[in-house]
Write a protein that binds this DNA or RNA. Structure first.
Lengths: 206, 206
DNA sequence: TGTACATCAGTGAACGCGCGTTCACTGATGTAC
DNA sequence: TGTACATCAGTGAACGCGCGTTCACTGATGTAC
């Protein structure tokens, strides 16, 4: 692959190089210099496009939240065909995202980026969270009004379980960890199923 | 604090220095040199007690698993007074451990240590997991035998949710993240409650 | 179409830094007699 | 109790390395006339 003095689209090339590196060694293992080398460019060239190492990392996370929000939105599909089916599809999409976009996922949730320092990141992260909460909200309308938990709590539970499954049972087997006794996808599906039954959204013994 | 040429208990002093550093900057931010300095000792001195940086990190994790297993065991209390109460106490103990021993927790679950490289670590990690599974097992005996999920799956669900709550909602507010809308302790308690209701272990509308 | 010039993306060398690790050493401690 | 000696925990200097970042520069591109 030949290129002249000018790269053409260095900015995005750097983001993609960073993605591979992050997926491979985690967000803290990723270095600006390696990303530059992977994009076939001097480390100094990076500074034409980003304020520095962390700023590049933040851009990766930002793009991740965009994809994430779009994917969740698509999976939820406005609550069709049923609120329940849509909700379960959203859960599956969460895991699919973590599996398919590990670099993005790690930059988003494991890099420890301060949302205060990156307002646009905070914005798009909030948007992604909003998608999850709207899905929870729409499902919670099917519960008896008296005893439904707040939708934000509901969605926090599901999010926590999803994230836990990713970190402990999906990421785990990739490293030298003990492999999960169950496929992460099954684990999350059954877990969400039991949880929804606890909310009266599924028949007690289906 | 005065000391002579010999430290006395450098090994454990290094572990404790590492704990503070890990809690502060995460497992990857921790450096052998800083730990040595915090213990008031030359970096080279560390090599009298550990094979290197990662070996020190592994010892931190090892001690963490010991404390963790003991704490869980204590909280479960052999399933007294009831299997249910004991199980819920175990859940609370999980979060209490993460809060009280953040350095240990991070070394155990966020350092990405390969269990293949540290057999004794794998051993004690397995022991800790065993405690969780026994707690799940004993509670699952109260379910109708036909439709109870395997105890390992059951415990994986609870573990995932607990870990997710720690990572997303406890750790989060410490950093520049959006603070949790609910206290992590409440979040986990309600989450586990709903889950257990889904298993028929709690009355449908209590 | 051709030329002068502005723009700006990338270069390459240099910086200071802290890292993990090694090595020959030295000083304190403990044991043998 | 006193002395010679072995043990070994910690020192201090040195290493090579890769990091993020800066700076004056240069070469390619695009625009004005």
């Amino acid at each position: 692959m030949k290129r002249g003095y000018h790269h053409g689209n260095l900015r995005q090339a750097l983001v993609e190089a960073a993605l591979l590196l992050i997926a491979e060694k985690g967000p803290t293992g990723f270095t600006l210099s390696e990303a530059a080398k992977a994009a076939d460019v001097t480390p100094a060239a990076v500074y034409r496009h980003f304020a520095g190492r962390e700023d590049l990392l933040a851009e990766v996370a930002r793009q991740g939240y965009d994809i994430f929000a779009a994917l969740m939105e698509f999976a939820f599909n406005g609550g069709k065909p049923t609120a329940l089916a849509a909700f379960e599809a959203t859960g599956r999409a969460y895991l699919a995202f973590a599996r398919k976009y590990p670099g993005h996922y790690m930059a988003m949730f494991e890099a420890g980026l301060s949302l205060n320092d990156y307002p646009d990141l905070a914005l798009v992260a909030g948007k992604a969270r909003g998608v999850l909460e709207r899905a929870a909200e729409s499902l919670s309308e099917h519960m008896p009004p008296g005893k439904r938990p707040p939708a934000t709590m509901f969605s926090a539970h599901i999010w926590a379980m999803s994230h836990g499954v990713v970190e402990l049972f999906m990421r785990g087997s990739a490293n030298g960890r003990a492999p999960s006794p169950f496929p992460p996808e099954d684990l999350l599906e059954t877990g969400i199923g039991i949880y929804l039954r606890g909310l009266g959204l599924l028949p007690p013994d289906a």
